[in-house]
Amino acid sequence: MLRRSALFMPGNNPAMLLSASILGSDCIIFDLEDSVSLNQKDSARLLVKHAIETLDFGNVEVVVRINPVSSQEWKQDLREIVPVYPDAIMIPKACKEDVEEIERFIFEIEEEKQLTKKVKLMIIVETAYGIETIVETLRCSRRIECVLLGAEDLTTDLGIKRTKEGHEIDYARAKVAMAARAFSIQAMDTPFTDVEDREGLVKDTLHAKSLGFSAKACIHPNQIDAVHAVFDPTQSEIDAAIEILEERDRALALGLGVFSIHGKMIDLPVIQRAQNIVDLARKTGKRK
């Protein structure tokens, strides 16, 4: 599934739920947690449940962020949401212990309701403990598909100031990207919070991409195109990748193990990267 962007939307806004699938984001995250006030938790949960049951989201991945294990709400969130088959449940403030508890409860629901498809998990690491124990967390469940770095809560936990430049989260970013790669799980970058600053968003996303992130969470629809532009391969990247794959095919036909293009030796990792670029180009429609 193509997942370059994931747009957070409050779960208690019917108009937003209705338009969620048409804003261009690859993934939408209906939020039952931070953007929903305590007295709205019930209605948000029911609205999201009915939206998933009723609306056609097409190719857009539907994820629901539940309330954390420390709250009174998370079990009821799962009881209502898991049976309507969202693509994934997003777990906030994730650590190994919480993920295990949530997965046990999800399993109970799936058994009880005899659900035919297992729901996937996405986790947010957003505490110092979560960052430092991320490897254990990622190892504890096969359902985890994606890990999102939550820099706002993390910097609050660290008692430091969040800046646009983001140097304060460099360590966390590198750690999340590395751990995710180790488990072949996607790393998704923290949202950029100034929704009017497109230039800053592009810079921030490019930095995350350079560290190994392949997606970015968005908090406003106007961020989606810029994020896609960063993660989409450029035409020259696509052209170069196609050339490599064509040369590979020629070399294979001739029974050659290695070959070179423009004097540069092409080995397996380069071919794999070229294949990734062409696959992504196909998914994004840049190459038919």
Binding site: S19, I22, L23, G24, H220, P221, N222, D225
Partner: peptide
């Protein structure tokens, strides 16, 4: 309105 902007795009 994000929906209107989407139409414009």
């Amino acid at each position: 309105d994000p929906v209107g902007l989407r139409i414009a795009k």
